[in-house]
Design a protein around this nucleic acid. Structure first.
Lengths: 188, 188
DNA sequence: AGATAACACGAGTAAACGCTCATCTCGCAG
DNA sequence: CTGCGAGATGAGCGTTTACTCGTGTTATCT
């Protein structure tokens, strides 16, 4: 079953959800279609299972990233803590983007995805409130929104670039922009 | 023919490219499928024509945005000039995202899209070099990359939010971040 | 060894979809 | 009024694809 999920993940990344046939998944996994349909009621179920697996990984990441001590880290280090793990996760799993795109197929998956995003947003908001207690809740939420969006953009930019050195430069530059922004938020 | 393109644009925005059937396009446009296929050799041709139309609009935008005088504008005004038109264009055309996604279907479209992005990148690089002549070419390109990515992220964020006031706040906050970044780039 | 249950198999099915083409419509010239 | 041609029409064709089911294979227990 995990084998099927891994194979589906590969094919979704290569061809996208729609263009991937269930027969192709079964064939590459060296399993008959009959067996595939013993474990998954239909094609969407595979997508849902993959989405669930990713969600689990994301939640695991939250637990590691949003620990209590990060509040006391210097700002640049805090940034690394917030950005690098998510970047690595997404660069290592090229199918994730396709799963999110495939989400428009099923309302369930889209809902789960946006719940995950809201969780990040909420955690970031709390983090900012602890780092900068003078911030209003509304402002902290706004900063969290922009932060989340910028990291998303960074992930997109980094995914498009294959050269490691160039990628590192883009990452560093974006972090620099975020650092300046955070500093100005704290100063007020 | 324009009627067909507009209808296709609507349906792609609602359902996505794959899920939209040619019959559905013809039906909603109140045209027979036979007639549709008189004007477009196949389904992809519709997508390509739409992509071409968007590209044309984008190029028109370049001409209006990247004029010679922008170099002498104050930074915050320059930012508005660079961000607002693109934001408006994308908010007003909800199918654009789907066209870009559908681009993975055809290498041609993907190529055209990345050419358009390279053009923006090039124009931004030149702009930054004129505004800040002390910048190295490599650095200007890097700044352009980050700028482009951030505007993309802003478009994505803004598209997800329906409340006008909330959207305006997100836009203002992101511009603030970019402003701080540009100031620090100029200062060095 | 034989019986039984659990699972794997893949040819086949029904539905959907992109696309074609024989037919029809209609405006116009002679 | 007739004949003609450009263009519109939609039933239907061929193909693809998600999914089923009758058969074959293996594992387990008595």
């Amino acid at each position: 079953m995990d084998l099927l999920l891994d194979t589906a993940s590969e094919l979704f990344a290569e061809l996208g959800y729609e263009a991937t046939t269930t027969n192709a998944i079964a064939e590459r996994a060296e399993v008959s279609i009959g067996s595939l349909y013993r474990y998954f009621p239909d094609k969407q179920a595979i997508l849902k299972a993959l989405a669930a697996r990713h969600l689990e990984q994301l939640r695991g990441l939250y637990a590691r990233v949003f620990t209590d001590d990060v509040v006391y880290l210097p700002l640049p280090v805090l940034l690394d803590r917030l950005v690098d793990p998510f970047l690595e996760l997404h660069l290592g799993r090229p199918d994730y983007a396709h799963i999110l795109l495939g989400a428009s197929v099923s309302a369930d998956i889209a809902a789960a995805g946006s719940v995950a995003e809201d969780e990040i947003q909420e955690r970031l908001t709390h983090l900012f409130l602890r780092v900068a207690p003078r911030l209003s809740k509304a402002r902290a939420r706004l900063v969290a929104t922009v932060c989340k969006g910028t990291v998303k953009a960074l992930i997109a930019m980094a995914s498009e670039v294959n050269d490691r050195k160039h990628r590192a430069k883009i990452v560093a530059e974006t972090k620099q922009m975020m650092l300046l922004y955070f500093q100005s938020v704290l100063r007020r």
